[in-house]
Design a protein around this nucleic acid. Structure first.
Lengths: 192, 192
DNA sequence: AAACCCATGTAACGCGTTACATGATTAT
DNA sequence: ATAATCATGTAACGCGTTACATGGGTTT
């Protein structure tokens, strides 16, 4: 079973959804850590229906195309729970093309390296800001009240917060790199 | 041109290499951010040779199989430089299966959620330790001297240091999650 | 008039993983 | 004996991206 299947089961478990809505969901915070396009989602949903993981109800609409609303079957719920309770092995590699380029930064001019890091820094500062706004909006939705750990809101909190921490780290690293490029060297004893 | 091609060009640019050595290189720090198996590397090197990006010299050996040593062509060097000087668009999604699971943690029991985070925490603590050891060894290789930013060592420093920062962040996030699971809620005003 | 939203599908292609395949030498 | 190292390849398969395809309704 592919990870996409579990992602879809998880999303449908919160609420019945159409393929279109599921694709849209990947624009939201979870899209920072998993996503899929409609060309992958629609065929996958068909398969999952055939495998009795989800029910399908066709709904006629006026002024809009008809839609297929999917909901979890008992089997789908069991399969989701099974996955949620299985340990994932942390993969050795988190592919990041910029980190690969960084590995070869000794090969380029100092100016070019600076340009690269400045571009990266701007990207990640932008994403950090978006995430922080998203967190602020989320906190306001909760009206300052606590988020209970056995609710769907907790999951959202966890991923947004992780996104923020990750982007802060990226920003900090870019700034350090720019500093090292300015002085032309790293004095490693600083970081022991 | 695939990213793998650039990875191989970059590695070969530092020093002529065989396919076998290139695959082994992905066990080292850069493997945290990019990797490939021999079944992908060997065919790719053949293609790159056909495309005149790399030279190939067959070397006969005794007591060992023959090997093919690849080195950069002028074209290969140009193509590498071109890539190094082009801005990469930061991808929206950094796939992370555990983050996807975290998003659905409201669906499982508190005990199960704790088990999941503890397992994750152990994994990332282990990786952090390995990276810190690798950094210590690296610093000792440099005999405490500074790392100039126009050397190959700078690239290695950058990726190892980024790995450490990333793992520290992951560890910290897991610990916070475990704390929230213990008290049963998040009080979001803490993090504004 | 052009662009965007809703809503669903299929087809082609490339990258990455798993598995198949060989074989001598050296270390445990 | 068993496993690991050196060294290179091919084949099958699945996931994910890009592109092809349709079409009415709404907003700019």
């Amino acid at each position: 079973m592919s990870v996409l299947r579990y992602a879809l089961l998880g999303l449908i478990s919160k609420e019945s959804r159409t393929g279109y809505e599921l694709v849209a969901e990947f624009e939201h915070p979870i899209g920072n850590f998993w996503n899929a396009l409609h060309s992958q989602v629609y065929p996958e949903l068909s398969q999952m229906h055939q495998d009795d993981l989800i029910n399908c109800v066709q709904v006629k609409q006026e002024g809009k195309p008809d839609k297929k609303v999917y909901s979890l079957t008992t089997k789908g719920y069991v399969v989701l729970q099974q996955w949620l309770n299985t340990f994932v092995k942390t993969p050795r590699t988190m592919r990041d093309e910029f980190m690969l380029k960084a590995y070869f930064m000794g090969e380029v001019s100092a100016k070019s390296a600076r340009d690269q890091f400045e571009s990266q820094l701007r990207d990640h500062e932008g994403r950090l800001q978006t995430l922080e706004e998203s967190l602020t909006a989320f906190i306001q939705d909760q009206e300052g009240g606590p988020i209970r750990t056995n609710t769907a809101e907790f999951g959202r909190w966890l991923v947004v917060w992780k996104g923020i921490m990750t982007e802060r780290t990226y920003v900090e690293w870019c700034r350090q790199a720019l500093h090292w490029l300015e002085v032309g060297e790293v004095r490693p004893q600083m970081f022991r």
